[in-house]
Design a binder for these strands. Structure first.
Lengths: 206, 206
DNA sequence: CTTAGCGCTAAGCGCTCGCTTAGCGTGCAG
DNA sequence: CTGCACGCTAAGCGAGCGCTTAGCGCTAAG
């Protein structure tokens, strides 16, 4: 019996599957939990190491700095959510936007630990690292805008301001990471379905 | 000519008008700027003092701790936004919800500095202080829900899930504090109008 | 059996943190 | 003019920070 507090987690979350070796992955998962719970600056490298069940110095075997841990989490998180949003299928713009919002909002609930780091710790990245994830964020915005624009072309959506509507839809999904609690009444899938419904109401024509 | 970086600010923002003496107010404003810009934990008491144009020890003349500075900002910010949301007028539920969303979203843009501290630094408050602002947050939620519920009773709104819709509307407004930049294209009033419009589309009947 | 390589730990370095203490300078009551 | 109260500063304390260094124990090739 270990006492790291991460026993059941690494098995449930497949986000970090590709990270090797094992100790480096445990360190990343521990860091993601700590950053999500207390914020990057309030987390010490000793917190991360002890969550991962190792000594403080072990962090620096696999990562050059605490900021590099953050960057790895942020990069993988952005890539995962972009991939998710890019792989949306559906017949017609209505179904595609429904699936996109359900998936994107649902991801921010189900993986709220990673999502919180992704969305709220951007400012702690180095300028170079920040620029790298900013490019991914631009692609996420373009994808969502395209799903809405498709519906306008098809004539099934009507919005007064495409950029404004895209901003609002993304904003709605992202903010799920802030308020979501696993102990709450709604499951990630229910949140996805609720939000998809609300967004479709927002963009439907009169 | 001083070099505190706060020259034009205190005159523009009336949120802190009631805080006296003058040095205590300057300290609060400096802290709000620093917390909003870098986060509570990344801000040092030396940062705050030098932004306010005073020595590091001066912080402790007016406040017992750095956390007490945060609590004051959070409390006044929550009270201000609750007062704003409570004073909404309008003939009919449609106009009241329009005005409520415009005001609440607009506040999160115009006073995004305070709003960021209010919305994203709750976790740095002591348990006692957190409980105090949590009660104000409950009241804010109740107010917004009442505006939506009024429209359902009047028969001018139709939502599948009142609590879910309230959550989404508040979420949308709150997240403005995250992405808003004064250098952006939209003014706070324009954001308020855009969001009010989108929310009314979301709750309108078929 | 020897030994090189590697993942990891024990110990600790230099630094900066939140906060405290001692005392200075100003203004005002007597 | 004296003396004291008050707002503030200069200096610094103990603690804990990110990160480094020296070296341990295990594995496996020769």
């Amino acid at each position: 019996m270990t006492t790291t507090g991460l026993e059941g987690f690494s098995l449930l979350d497949e986000t970090w599957r590709a990270v090797t070796p094992d100790a480096a992955r445990r360190m990343l998962i521990a860091a993601a939990h700590a950053f999500a719970g207390k914020g990057y600056h309030a987390t010490t490298t000793r917190d991360i190491a002890s969550l991962a069940g190792m000594s403080p110095a072990a962090v620096y075997i696999h990562y050059r700095s605490k900021e590099e841990l953050l960057f790895n989490i942020s990069l993988v998180g952005h890539e995962t959510s972009l991939t998710l949003l890019s792989g949306i299928e559906g017949t017609g713009a209505v179904e595609r936007l429904r699936n996109a919002v359900a998936a994107f909002a649902g991801w921010h609930a189900e993986f709220h630990t990673t999502a919180r780091v992704v969305q709220y710790e951007l400012g702690a990245l180095s300028p170079e690292h920040h620029a790298e994830v900013a490019e991914l964020r631009r692609q996420i915005e373009q994808r969502m805008r395209a799903y809405i624009a498709d519906g306008i072309k098809e004539g099934v959506f009507d919005v007064p301001d495409l950029k404004g509507a895209t901003l609002a839809v993304l904003s709605l999904c992202i903010d799920v990471a802030r308020w979501y609690q696993p102990s709450g009444k709604r499951t990630p899938d229910e949140i996805g379905a609720l939000y998809a419904d609300l967004v479709l109401r927002m963009v439907r024509p009169n």
